[in-house]
Amino acid sequence: MKVVVDMNQCQDHGQCVFAAPDVFRFDDDGHLAYVPDPDESLREQVEEAADVCPLQAIRIEA
């Protein structure tokens, strides 16, 4: 699957990191980093991450 985060919108709330820790994480500078092409088995996690993003900055494109 393909995940895109609009980094102009992201405000580092971190809710996606809690929902899908295998896909989203904070780097050493405290900024969001993510896996753009996570395994299909993680879809439910990623969908939940997209739901809980306060900025609705996460898009699942395929």
Binding site: D12, H13, G14, F18, F26, G30
Partner: peptide, 12 residues
């Protein structure tokens, strides 16, 4: 700031 929020998340 962001550091405080990160500290809060550690207790989640």
């Amino acid at each position: 700031g962001p550091a405080a929020a990160t500290a809060a998340a550690r207790y989640r």
